[in-house]
């Protein structure tokens, strides 16, 4: 017992914590099931109605977005997993036990973020590729046939679907760090995804496009886009710009959380 434990020891400790609690494990399973299951449901529902699309819709059709429709649901699951990872420590006051074992706040938050990101990334990528192959099978031979992974931006779009879930999980984690309450963090996360678009809809249309582009779920669609426009023609950021903007949200939220954590009493 002479060596000094570092970040790796804390990562192992946080991994034990992640897998030994029901909520995080169930959340991860739900995220996996939603990504694949909703993708299948959308696939079967949309398949029969492809002919009724308007010419504009047809022109801007991005079949990958259809196959990845489950991400729109799974993004709520990852936000909840991320937020609960830290808020459950505050609501149970186990944060005091945790911080007395690991007083270095930056190291603790980094270890939690790394475990969270790795789990969501691995499960999210698997789910995204399964959803892609399901979609490819469903839409085979239709006007919404999915391009093969080697064509254009297909592989990138599928890969970024898993990365999007990872970033959204980190964003939820950042909100949890800042707010410290499960209910508050989850409702804030949900509001940002659902309420902001409604509020933006009330604004003059000239503003709408400029603001909409920055919404997390729209950034996600931009990351998954192979065409550069959304269905209906709404312009979005380029793939990597969108990824960078979403990543900056995560850095801002988690960064603010770390600063607050080192200033506040536990």
């Amino acid at each position: 017992m002479t060596h000094t434990p570092g970040l790796y020891a804390v990562i192992r400790s946080e991994w034990i914590k992640f897998r030994s609690v029901r909520s995080t494990v169930i959340g991860t399973v739900i995220m996996f099931v939603l990504t694949i299951g909703i993708g299948l449901l959308i696939g079967f529902a949309v398949k029969g109605h492809l002919q009724s699309m308007t010419p504009v819709e047809r022109a801007t059709l991005d079949p990958i977005q259809l196959a990845m429709g489950g991400i729109l649901f799974a993004q709520f699951a990852v936000g909840v997993i991320g937020a609960l990872l830290i808020t459950s420590e505050y609501t149970s006051t186990s944060i005091r036990t945790t911080l007395s074992a690991v007083p270095n706040r930056l190291r603790l938050v980094s270890a939690k973020a790394i475990v969270l990101a790795l789990v969501i990334f691995i499960v999210g990528e698997i789910a995204s590729f399964v959803a892609y192959f399901d979609g490819a099978a469903i839409f085979h031979g239709t006007i919404a046939a999915l391009p093969s992974l080697s064509q254009g931006k297909t592989l990138q779009a599928v890969f970024l679907s898993g990365l999007y879930l990872t970033l959204m999980g980190l964003f939820g984690f950042g909100l949890g760090l800042i707010l410290r309450q499960s209910a508050g963090s989850i409702s804030t996360y949900t509001s940002l995804l659902l309420i902001i678009p409604i509020l933006v809809f009330l604004l003059p249309s000239s503003w709408q496009n400029n603001i909409t582009k920055f919404e997390p779920s729209v950034l996600g669609q931009a990351m998954r886009s192979t065409t550069g426009v959304l269905r209906g023609g709404t312009p979005v950021f380029g793939t990597w710009t969108a990824t960078a903007i979403l990543a900056s949200y995560c850095v801002a939220a988690v960064g603010a959380g770390i600063i607050l954590m080192s200033r506040r009493d536990a």
Partner: peptide, 23 residues
Amino acid sequence: EAKAVHPGRSARNHLLALAVSNG
């Protein structure tokens, strides 16, 4: 505080996570 433990985690896993973090 005696209750400063995640209620959903087993006693052994709680202690194991603490132990691992400190080598």
